[in-house]
Simulated assay, not measured.
Amino acid sequence: MELTDIRIPYIVPAAFFVVALLIKLPTLRRAFRDPNVRSTSLMMFLATLIFLSIAPTSVHRINTFIGISNVAAPWTYSLLTAFGGCCLSMLITWQDGPGPRRLRRTRRVWIIHAGIIAALWISFLMADVPSERITDLDTYYATTPWMREHILLYLLAHMASAMAAVRLILPWVKELESAWLRMGLRLLQAGYACGLVFDVSKLCALVARWFGTPDWDFLSLRIAPNFALLNGILVALGFILPQAGPFLRDRWTDHATYRRLRPLWQLLHSIDPSPVPIRVRHFSPLPLRLMRRQTNIRDGLLLLAPHLDDQRRGTAFHAALEAGYKEHDARGTAGAIDILVAVDLFRTATRPEGGEDSAPLSSDLISVEPISLALRSPSRIEAIRRLAENRKSSHTDG
C-alpha cells in the first residue's frame, strides 16, 4: 500500500467528529462546569485525534515530524487508552449523582489509565524498533523485547476498559425509561463488542507470532482495523446520541412548527398586528424566531377578536365533518374560515354585531397549527365555506 493512498474510512469519521466538536464548542463555553459537557467534549476531541492519527499517512507524518521511528504507536495507543478512560468516566457520571462517590470512582479511573499511558511510553522508549512499520507494527515487533510488552499492554488495557464498561451498562440498560439513553447504551454495547473483536483478533495474531506462525497476520492487518473503526464510531455515537438526540428532536419540532405557522402568520401580519418589543433577525436562534411568530399570531388574533364568531366557526366545523374531514382537520378548517371572514371585516372596518362587548378570543382558536395548515388549501376552505353557507341557509329556511 502506498503512503499516498486515501483512506476514506478514516477520513469520514474524523470529519464527523470535527464537525460535532465545533458544534459543541459554544455549549462547552457556556457550561464548562457541567461534567457531562466536559466529558462529552473531551471524548469527541480524543475520537477526532484517534481517527486523524491512525490513517497510514498520518502514522508516517507523526514519525517524521517527531523524528523517532514508530513513535506514532505510543501516541495512538495513549489516545486509545485515554478514550477508554473518558468513556468509563462518562458512564460513571451518568450513573452516579454529584457527590464524593462519583468523584472517587472517576478519579480512580483516570489514575489507572494515566498509569497505563506512562507504562506505554516507558516500554516504548526501552524497546529497539528502528524499522518504521506503517500497518503491521504489532505483528512485525511481536517478539521484540519491551515492544512485545508495549503491544500486549495496550491490547489488555483496551480489553479491560471495554469489559468494565459493558459490566456497567448491562444491569443498567434494563432499568432505563429514557429512549434516547437506552438507544445510546445499545450503541455502546455494539461498539464495545466490536472493540473486543478487535482485541481478540490482534491477540490471536500476536500469539501466533510468538509461536513462529505468521499465517494469522491477516487478523491484525485486515480484520482488526475494520472492527476498530466500528468500535470508535459506535462508542462515540453512543455517548453523543443521548445528549444530541433530544436537542435535535426539539430543534426539528420547533422548525416544523415554525414552518407550519407561516401561512397564518402571513395572513395576520397583513393586518399589521402590534409589534413585539423583541429584536429578531433572520439568523436569530430558532426558538426566538418561533416565539416571535407565535406572539405575532396571538396579537393578530386578539386584534381580530371582535370580528370572530363562534357560531360561524361552529357551522363551518359541522359542514367539514359532513364533508368527511376528521375532527382535528375540521376544527382547523373552521378556524381558518372564521379568521378569513374576520380579516375581511377588519379591513373594511365593518362593526360586528355586539360592538365592543363581543366575546374574547375563543379557546378553540388557541391551537393555531391546524388553522395555519388549513390555510394552505384555499380550494378546500372555499368548498367548506360554501357548504357552511348552504347549511346556514337551510337552517334559516327551516
Rank of each mutant, 00 (worst) to 15 (best):
T257E: 14
M90G: 08
L340M: 07
L25C: 09
L301Q: 06
R29F: 12
R313H: 07
M291T: 12
R331L: 12
F32A: 13
R331K: 14
P306D: 07
A244F: 06
I122A: 15
L248A: 06
A162G: 09
N63R: 09
F51S: 06
A119W: 07
L152V: 07
D136N: 14
R292I: 09
W121R: 06
T143Y: 08
V12T: 05
R260H: 11
S367H: 13
A55M: 09
A349T: 10
G67R: 01
S358A: 14
I337N: 03
R289C: 05
A374P: 01
G85C: 04
S131R: 13
G195M: 05
K24N: 08
L237T: 09
L156V: 15
S123E: 11
L188I: 10
S358L: 08
P145N: 04
S53V: 05
I116S: 04
R347W: 04
S41W: 08
M1K: 13
S131N: 11
D5I: 13
Q294L: 10
A388C: 05
P285E: 06
L3R: 11
G300N: 03
P9D: 04
A256E: 14
D310H: 08
L79K: 03
R292C: 07
M43D: 01
A118G: 13
R376F: 01
R260F: 03
L261A: 06
L229N: 13
S358P: 03
G332C: 02
R313I: 05
F239P: 03
R262V: 11
S393Y: 10
A15V: 09
L248K: 00
D96M: 14
L308H: 05
W265H: 15
M183S: 14
I50A: 06
R167E: 09
L25N: 06
P352E: 02
S89M: 08
V173E: 02
A114W: 03
L365Q: 00
S372I: 02
E369N: 04
K24L: 13
Y154E: 14
A359G: 05
I50E: 07
R7D: 12
D272P: 00
L219N: 00
P100H: 11
T396M: 14
H60N: 12
I223R: 05
L308T: 06
I233R: 01
A383I: 03
T81E: 09
I169P: 00
V235S: 07
E322G: 06
Y141I: 01
I151R: 04
R251A: 11
L261H: 02
A72P: 00
P370L: 07
Y141F: 10
L120F: 12
L88H: 12
R38S: 12
R108M: 13
L302C: 12
D215P: 02
M159R: 07
D5T: 15
H328N: 11
L170I: 15
